[in-house]
Simulated scan of single mutants.
Amino acid sequence: MAAATVSHQHLRDFIAGVYRAAGVPEAQAGIVAGLMAQADLIGADGHGVFRLPQYVRRIRAGGMNATAVPRIVQERPGAALVDGDNGLGHLATRLAAETAIAKARTQGVAWCGVRNGNHAGPASLYARMVQEAGMIGLYLAVGSANHLPPWGGLELLLSTNPIAVAVPAGEEPPVVLDMATTVAAYGKVKVKAQRGEAMPEGWMIDREGRPLTDPARANEGLLLPIGGYKGYGLALIFGLLAGTLNGAAMGRDVVDFNADDTTVTNTGQAVLAIDIAAFGDPAAFRAQVDALARDIRGSARLPGVDRIWLPGEQSRLTRLRREAEGVPIPPALRAQLDALAAELGAALLPG
């Protein structure tokens, strides 16, 4: 059965209504709903409304604080540490991004970390916040479950630990890189499992080193890092910066929020904002980004290649299409969302 579509507005209103029914204050419910619906708009299907049943389950089980108020607990002119109060991760990370932007306007560069947070959706959401303020944005996070062993090992001590970087342009779209340090984010594995689809070879291996393509057996396997040992190194460093530096969980302390609804995760994130004006003329910089983007897109292609893409272009096209046509909701996910809304007494998702 094909996935039915729902408008962005209806999706956002539905998410907000479910959160309110689960005890999240109205203002916070609206903020998080907007960010989650935005994730679906850009095609990050494993990080938008797909996560709603899981988030609500953790709230109701006591693993996440529905009425959390994130706050800055330590700061300097160009740095800050946000405590998420064990609430919805989007709230703490949004505060970190807003704080980094404000500080970078006077300091040129600002770094804000998060501790005691939770899963906060796709990395690009927060790098884009900084980019939309006219700055270069960078986001790092410790993933919310360990699925990656050290290079050559079997013990799951690292996560997908993603990075996103968003660079403003002028007439061209911004350049937005959003990637896990594993070949595939675990959210994509979960989406494959829900849809009954096989994973491509190269995403996971079993404990004998053989390819694992059945997402229903993902808990038996190991995610593979990008670039072999280099991806392992990046996952480690990003975790130290987004987790250990902030007093957040890393290594053995990371809680698998897919399997544990009651334990506080203490998830860590970090947002860096770079004010382009601290380094030169922002208009000149954006013009140079435009020129480079056009050079890359217009460069010679290998046989059979129709187009050279820049990071973020495909997500942008997905957003434009879904704004016009709606966000697809697969039947299995729709059934989960209908059941969740009915259980909470919230309005059903239209369509």
Rank of each mutant, 00 (worst) to 15 (best):
L95E: 03
A97I: 00
T99M: 06
C112A: 12
L125E: 01
P70Q: 08
A66V: 10
T67W: 10
A96C: 01
A66Q: 10
A68T: 06
V73I: 13
R115I: 09
L81T: 10
G62L: 02
R115C: 14
N65A: 13
N118Y: 14
N116G: 12
P122F: 10
L95M: 15
G89P: 04
V69F: 12
N65L: 06
G87A: 06
G78D: 14
A66H: 12
M129N: 00
A80P: 09
L125T: 06
V73C: 09
G87H: 02
A61M: 01
N116D: 13
Y126I: 00
T93G: 03
M129F: 14
H119G: 02
A66G: 11
R105M: 05
R115H: 09
R76S: 13
L91Q: 08
I101E: 02
A123M: 02
D83F: 13
Y126V: 02
I101R: 01
N118S: 14
W111Y: 15
R105F: 10
R94V: 12
L125H: 03
R94D: 11
R76P: 00
A68C: 08
R128H: 09
G87N: 07
P122N: 08
G63P: 02
R94K: 15
R105T: 04
A110M: 10
L81F: 12
N86I: 05
W111R: 10
A110V: 02
G63A: 06
A96M: 02
L91H: 07
V109P: 00
L81V: 08
P122R: 05
C112R: 01
V82D: 07
P70I: 04
H90F: 13
K103R: 15
K103H: 05
T67D: 12
N118L: 09
G87P: 09
A92F: 11
C112F: 01
R94L: 15
P77H: 13
T93V: 15
R128D: 14
G121C: 09
C112E: 00
L95C: 03
R60S: 09
A97H: 01
D85T: 11
T99S: 13
H90W: 07
Q74L: 04
V69M: 14
R105S: 12
Q74W: 12
S124N: 07
Y126K: 04
N118E: 12
G89C: 03
Y126G: 05
V73Y: 10
T93L: 14
G63I: 00
L81I: 06
A100M: 04
M129P: 08
Y126N: 03
H90K: 05
H90L: 02
T67N: 13
A120T: 04
G117C: 01
G89V: 00
D85G: 10
I72L: 11
E75K: 06
T67L: 07
V73K: 06
Q74E: 13
A66R: 12
G121E: 04
Q107A: 15
N65E: 12
K103A: 02
G62C: 05
P122A: 12
L91N: 04
R60M: 12
L125Q: 07
G62V: 00
Y126S: 06
L81A: 10
G121S: 08
A92P: 09
A100L: 01
